[in-house]
Simulated scan of single mutants.
Amino acid sequence: MSRQQTSLSRKGFLKRSGASLLTLSMAAGLGGAALAGCDKDKIADAPDGIEVPDWPYNYVKLDPEAAAQRAYDGYQRRIHDDLGG
């Protein structure tokens, strides 16, 4: 069997890429719309021993200084671990 070689022009490539991108973005949009209809009452009960949190989660205001310090400490710890020191 021999394979036929097809030449793909720049215009054809861009057309196919655009169609693929459009299809993927539409699929992602439909997936989000499908999940938007989830209701806590319609979700199956959790197994024994697992607590299902309220939806939406409670918002807790963060202290910007404490958050910045935690981020800095985590970054430094990762750098320190990566360098093996």
Rank of each mutant, 00 (worst) to 15 (best):
G18T: 07
Y59T: 07
D54C: 00
G12M: 02
L24K: 15
F13N: 05
I43N: 05
P64L: 04
Y59W: 08
A66I: 11
A68N: 14
S2D: 12
P64C: 00
Y72D: 12
A27M: 08
A71K: 08
L21F: 13
A44M: 03
G12K: 09
I43G: 04
L35M: 08
K40A: 10
R78L: 05
D39L: 03
F13W: 11
R3V: 02
K40S: 09
A44Y: 02
A67N: 03
K42D: 12
C38V: 02
F13D: 04
K40E: 14
G31S: 14
T6S: 05
T6K: 07
K11V: 02
G12Q: 14
L83G: 01
Y75E: 04
Y72L: 12
I79E: 15
G29M: 01
A27E: 09
L22C: 11
L30D: 14
M26C: 02
L35Y: 10
I50V: 14
R10I: 00
L22I: 09
L21G: 12
Y57Q: 14
G74Q: 07
L62E: 15
A71S: 12
G12N: 05
K42F: 07
G37Y: 01
K42N: 14
S20M: 04
K61N: 06
L30K: 13
Q76N: 06
A67R: 03
S20Q: 10
A33M: 15
I43R: 02
G12C: 02
G31P: 00
T23N: 08
Q5N: 08
V52I: 11
